[in-house]
């Protein structure tokens, strides 16, 4: 490990050694290790292999109904994941409260539009999403509190509020309401939810890669202090990342509610770790600074296909959860080992 030790003398030979790995100035030529390569490209291979294996070995996988089902289930999680990618890239681990956010958005969409109409429901959902984003973002970005603990608290607050207000009851949309129309619309064989997922991915990919805000999220995740010292308002960067996550979770909630035209406070269980697994498997680093929304989409495909295979093989929720827990740890381990190989 090359750690910079503060040394009194300047220019210190130790530091010169630490910062000049090769004798002559220039780029150190370094072979790409297997772990690095896997961390970088592995997901493409794995996803392809997984789909191929599933098509060959799992009965019923390759049917049109099944594939449509996979996509229908993937859409809301995928929308959440592409949003949460911003939080992960900003080196703030994850936003656990997406579980509460998705359920709240779904319930608000159906319950409020039943009572007060569709437009008001959407406005209410937007306000709620902004509140989530700001509370999480301010606690993490301004008070520098740990994101996991902050979003753990907001999950409990949010779910508690939702259950308290809704009494845990299931809300049904009218069979001809706008939610139902949205949920059943198809473009050819493609459900509207998939189009929303792709649109969100493209939009957020654009935000991450082409806007100054997205650029700052990456820079902040790579080096907070260096980013601050270029004059950037780093608190706003963090708040922005959480607001984007919250807005994506809101859309994810809409799609989830529209799928079945029902909403209940418990409907988003498991969204937190499925989304995180998709992001990490996609190759976004939990160490921050590196990642891509497009690759998260690929991660979503991987996680969804994996889940579908488990469901088709008769494995229950417990097994799925175990597998995805393992997947997260394994993917992060590959990332950590690749980093180690890269810095030594």
């Amino acid at each position: 490990m090359m750690t910079d030790e503060p040394v009194a003398e300047t220019p210190s030979p130790d530091q010169a050694a630490a910062t000049t790995p090769a004798a002559e100035p220039g780029i150190e030529e370094r072979a790409v290790t297997v772990t690095e390569w896997m961390a970088d490209r592995g997901i493409f291979i794995f996803t392809a292999l997984l789909i191929l294996a599933a098509a060959v070995f799992i009965d019923g996988f390759a049917s049109l109904t099944n594939i449509t089902d996979v996509f229908n289930r993937a859409a809301p999680i995928g929308i959440v994941a592409v949003g949460m990618t911003f939080v992960v890239i900003s080196a703030n681990y994850l936003d656990l409260s997406v579980v509460a956010q998705v359920a709240t958005s779904a319930v608000v969409l159906i319950a409020v539009s039943n009572e007060y109409g569709f437009v008001l429901a959407i406005l209410a959902a937007i306000v709620i999403a902004l509140v989530y984003g700001f509370v999480n973002g301010v606690a993490v970005g301004v008070f520098k509190a740990n994101a996991v603990i902050v979003t753990l608290s907001t999950t409990f607050i949010g779910l508690g509020l939702l259950r308290w207000v809704s009494g845990g009851s299931i809300y049904f949309g009218p069979p001809d309401g706008p939610v139902r129309v949205f949920g059943s619309t198809r473009l050819g064989p493609i459900p509207l939810s998939m189009i929303v997922l792709v649109a969100m991915t493209l939009l957020l990919s654009f935000v991450l890669n082409r806007t100054t805000f997205g650029f700052l999220v990456k820079a902040y995740g790579s080096n907070r202090e260096a980013t601050r010292l270029t004059g950037a308002n780093t608190a706003m960067v963090v708040i922005g990342a959480f607001v984007i996550t919250a807005l994506a979770a809101m859309v994810g909630g809409f799609v989830l509610a529209a799928f079945s035209n029902t909403a209940v406070s418990s409907m988003s269980t498991g969204f937190d770790f499925r989304a995180l697994a998709a992001i990490i498997v996609g190759g976004t680093s939990v160490f921050g600074g590196r990642g891509s929304v497009m690759r998260t989409l690929l991660g979503v495909v991987f996680v969804s296909v994996l889940t579908n295979i488990m469901v088709l093989s008769g494995l229950g929720f417990g097994m799925q959860q175990m597998a995805i827990g393992l997947l997260i740890v394994a993917a992060v381990s590959v990332d950590a080992l690749a980093r180690k190989a890269g810095t030594s």
Partner: peptide, 28 residues
Amino acid sequence: TDGLALTMSVTDNITLPNRRHLSRGTIL
């Protein structure tokens, strides 16, 4: 620790303080 985002490219690091100048509106 303070001067560079080491995992980013030279271009990205140069863009960092110049992002306003190098974007139209908010688009880089």
